[in-house]
Nucleic acid binder design. Sequence first.
DNA 1: ATGCCTAACACCGTTAGA
Length: 265
Amino acid sequence: MVTIATFNVNSLRIRVPHLQAWLKARDPDVALLQEIKCLDEEVPRLEIQGMGYHVSAVGMKARHGVALLSKLPHKVELTALPGDPADSEARYIEAVIDLPDAPHGRPLRVASIYLPNGNPIGTEKFTYKLGWMDRLIAHARELLKREEILVLGGDYNVCPNDADVFDPAAMAGDALCQPETRQRYRALTNLGLVDAFHALHPEGHRYTFWDYQAGRWMRDEGLRIDHLLLSPQAADLLEASEIDREPRKQEKPSDHTPIWCRLAA
DNA sequence: ATGCCTAACACCGTTAGA
């Protein structure tokens, strides 16, 4: 059994106590982090290693940044999403982990993804988002040929459907809900990737993000934008997927909360 | 219609997030 979680921490350094409490409570085998907002050398490695995790990160100063934590050793295979050498934003890290109990001896491959927000629409930021999604689709297509237990997890900055939005009308002009955004998310899932949480909780209105402003958390007015996409070989092993709301209740929380899935591997 | 709140950086305001 392996538990894989994703958590946009909105600054890793300031969220160390939240991260430690959550790692202790959830005890995930793999934790994918986004928005670490620091350089590699500023990652609080001792605090993370002290919780029993190997840690790799792709950071940059003040913004973005992703990390990958695992109890078993992992081997980093990529530190950027292929397809645009000029893209210097820290948004992707991919690694493989050998699982002792994996069916057919397949390795586990995981990626921590911080997909561009893309707001406001009609600007180069939205164009960058769509281009990034096209590159992710192309890369996922290649990865799927490996037929591995693959989990692409992270902050996708995509509300796949109106049921993933507390107020679709209010968000209609937002980059997270545009038809072009949703079309690309569907293109991704149409490759054969399964949205783990959605597969087990199709009812909707279950959120992973609540804006700090306007009392959104209090009112449970949020968005579902953090996702775990599974290859067929991973989806066949899917046992459970849940959203951990506890970290969002703490003092000085991230505006996101973790989501996890459990695989029978 | 706009800002609401938070974090980082660098300067005591600005930029970005979603």
